[in-house]
């Protein structure tokens, strides 16, 4: 098996995450799609680290994880705030700025 198969898996997972972001209406599920995309890039980073024999790729994946954790905290807090004021977690209902 070629190591580049891992990159194919990462590409498929990334595309599924992106499709989730495009198609789903529930803000939390959309957010999970973003997480899936970040994880897919991490897999690509780890695979490239192995191909090049350099752990820098793993360090970058580590940074992605930290930033994703921070992003989840802020994003979920925003979702909860919107849910409190509008009683809905659907991205379609947040259209206050829409005339």
């Amino acid at each position: 098996m070629e190591i580049t198969n891992y990159l194919g898996l990462a590409a498929i997972l990334f595309a599924i995450g992106a499709t989730t972001v495009l198609l789903r209406r529930n803000a939390i599920v959309v957010f999970m799609g973003v997480e899936l995309m970040l994880n897919a890039t991490n897999l690509a980073f780890v695979t490239f680290a192995r191909i090049h024999g350099d752990v820098t790729g793993q360090v970058l994946a580590f940074f992605v994880m930290v930033v994703a954790a921070a992003e989840v905290v802020v994003g979920l807090a925003i979702i909860i705030t919107i849910f409190r004021s509008r009683r809905s977690a659907s991205v379609d209902d947040v259209n206050l700025l829409n005339s």
Binding site: I16, T19, V29
Partner: peptide, 10 residues
């Protein structure tokens, strides 16, 4: 299995 689970998210 992972691709199936990811499709489950979708």
């Amino acid at each position: 299995l992972m691709v199936l689970a990811a499709l489950g998210l979708l």
